[in-house]
Amino acid sequence: MDAVEIQSVTKTFGDLTAVDDLTLTVPEGSVYGFIGPNGSGKTTTMRMIVNIFYPDRGTIRVFGTESHGTSSAHIGYLPEERGLYRKMKVRELLEFYGELRGGRKVTAEVDGWLRKFDLFQWGDQKLETLSKGMSQKIQFIAAVVPSPKLLILDEPFSGLDPVSADLLRDAILELRHRGATIILSTHDMHVAESMCDRIFMIFRGKKVLDGTLESIQGQYGSDTIRVSSNGDAAALNGLPGVERVRDLGQVQELRMAQGCDPQEVLRALVGRARVSSFSIAKPSLHEIFVRIAGPAAEEVAVA
């Protein structure tokens, strides 16, 4: 069974169409990445899945059920805008959220998660005494206690230090191994590439990408060359058949025009600088994102 089936959904706010005729299926047990520029419709889509917003048109089914005006005990939701009752004590707050969603006492699960995140000793402290990073972890626990069948995480890693981010990543993957379906939105393309089974990109309310990383990259072919050389990025400008040079510091990424021969590029490059590595690759997700939503795409769209 699919965890989420979104069928021809449109959502407008006044004159703005936030989500436009979206159809999407999230298979059960998968990690599905939502990417897209700010304001493209990711959060609105997530809010519609958890029934905070209702679609103007179309249907959304969660585990085969279309629910309107009710909340589901099976969905855990971590919103992008973090906020909890700051005057409450950590354990009280987590038990409140857990009982509210699950309809039962969740004391043991709360303690387990607090230990996992090394926050057990903070259980009797008020939330307002915690650091921002700690509060974010608490909010994550509030979203996953009791264990949800579908976990929706809007920018779960934003603002976290690398250690906390790793902890959170492990926790998400553990939930996935236990059978949960994960939907997460992120601006970190590396996270999307490394964690997600499938990736969905929304741009100006419309679906522009949907599939596995491989299939998405396959749509663009092997049109990218990664080069390391002793010359700087300026030395690579004007290479035959190269449309765009992206300087990543130690490595430069070249995008080839259609019909460009990489051997010609290599020959021209060797004449300009000493090449230490040269590889032909599919475009990264970051590159694809920029091609769709970057300034160049904007210009094309305007033209």
């Binding site: 029934n51 939701y77 919103p79 009752y85 509210l100 509030a142 979203a143």
Partner: peptide, 19 residues
């Protein structure tokens, strides 16, 4: 105040506005 503290979005995923 709770709205400014962004408390409600998470609650609304768990309980309906009427509740």
């Amino acid at each position: 105040e709770d709205k400014l503290q962004r408390v409600y979005e998470m609650l609304l995923a768990t309980a309906t506005p009427f509740e």
